[in-house]
């Protein structure tokens, strides 16, 4: 705010200024900052290799899918802490169905999505009908979901290595679906998981921007009582929001399992925080009512690239935490609307 005079002197009124003062424009500032970081610390030119960018997008994809669902929930003024746990349930379920029980891929995928939607729907019911606070309800679901994942696996990873009754380890062939999801197309330039992520983002964006339901989400986040008195089906809309988040977790879980070639009941621990950070850095308001999928995409790319750039430079853990913390604060500061 102090530099507002300088900035206005630097830039004459126009499209550029207007863009920079829009939410998307402000979200872009943080992203550009991160990319500059990459240009400067390019790790002996590694930053300029195409593969690096492909990997950055791929690595951000699982988080991105979670952030898509999280955006929907946060727009209603809620929060979903259970995403990591539901991801784990889906990852282990998918692995059990395909690796141990040899179910066909599409039935397994469908089952996982149904289970993810179901878990999300339970949170949704607790929040919309029983009027539990989203934080509490999804905190409970976070614990419960982790419990489910551990219970059905006995705490062990579900991999192609099975212990038979004699205690011997037998090795099974990795099903094709795992390889398909973890492969790349277009001359190896884009990973399938990235495509899954972008597809989820696009569909959800369409619903948010063009569908009645999207409008209703925003109105609930903006003022739930006004929305109710204007005839918005508040309960149903909220319920759907958490269910959609559950579905996204299920998809992310399948992508996670395919990339790990196994289902780990510990998978996704702490992912909820990254997903929330991505949404918030994009500029979606934690209080609800403001935001959007496009913004979240910028947030996902910002954090995704930041992690990648820190990684190729082999920055030690302490440095990563410091830098990430600073970037989050900077990003959210640039997000803040100028009062005048």
């Amino acid at each position: 705010m102090t530099d507002s005079t300088q900035t206005s002197a630097l830039m004459k009124e126009g499209r550029f200024v207007r863009f920079l003062s829009s939410s998307a424009g402000r979200a872009t500032i943080a992203f550009v900052l991160v990319m500059l970081l990459g240009l400067i610390f390019n790790a002996d030119g590694a930053f300029f290799k195409l593969g690096m960018h492909r990997d950055a997008l791929r690595q951000a994809s699982v988080f991105g899918i979670l952030a898509v669902g999280m955006t929907v929930v946060i727009i209603t003024g809620g929060i979903d802490l259970s995403v990591g746990s539901i991801l784990a349930v889906s990852a282990v379920l998918f692995s059990i169905l395909t690796l141990h029980l040899d179910w066909p891929a599409w039935i397994s995928i469908l089952s996982c999505i149904i289970v993810g939607a179901g878990l999300g729907a339970i949170s949704g019911t607790l929040i919309a009908v029983t009027k539990l606070q989203p934080f509490i309800a999804t905190l409970a679901m976070m614990t419960f979901g982790r419990g489910v994942a551990k219970y059905i696996t006995g705490g062990q990873k579900i991999s192609t290595y099975l212990t038979n009754s004699d205690g011997e380890v037998i090795i099974k062939e990795l099903p094709r679906i795992f390889k398909v999801i973890d492969s790349r197309i277009m001359g190896g330039n884009i990973a399938i998981v990235s495509i899954i992520f972008l597809f989820c983002l696009l569909i959800t964006w369409l619903f948010l921007a063009k569908h009645k339901w999207g409008r209703e989400l925003f109105s609930i986040g903006g003022n739930e009582e006004s929305a109710r008195l204007s005839g918005v089906p508040v309960k149903w809309t909220k319920f759907l929001a958490y269910t959609v988040s559950g579905i996204m977790c299920a998809i992310a879980g399948i992508a996670q399992a395919a990339q790990e070639t196994q289902g780990d009941p510990e998978a996704g621990g702490g992912y909820e925080l990254t997903a929330i950070a991505m949404v918030v850095i994009g500029g979606t308001n934690m209080a609800g009512g403001r935001g959007g999928m496009g913004l979240t995409l910028i947030g996902i790319l910002t954090i995704g690239y930041l992690e990648k750039i820190l990684s190729i430079n082999a920055v030690p853990e302490s440095g990563r935490l410091l830098i990430t913390g600073v970037i989050i604060v900077l990003a959210v500061l640039t997000q803040r609307k100028n009062r005048n």
Binding site: A43, G51, M52, Q59, E260, A267, S311, I312, A314
Partner: peptide, 13 residues
Amino acid sequence: PNARKEMESALSR
């Protein structure tokens, strides 16, 4: 998952 990420960075470098 972290190992895979870091290895990708090492490979690209």
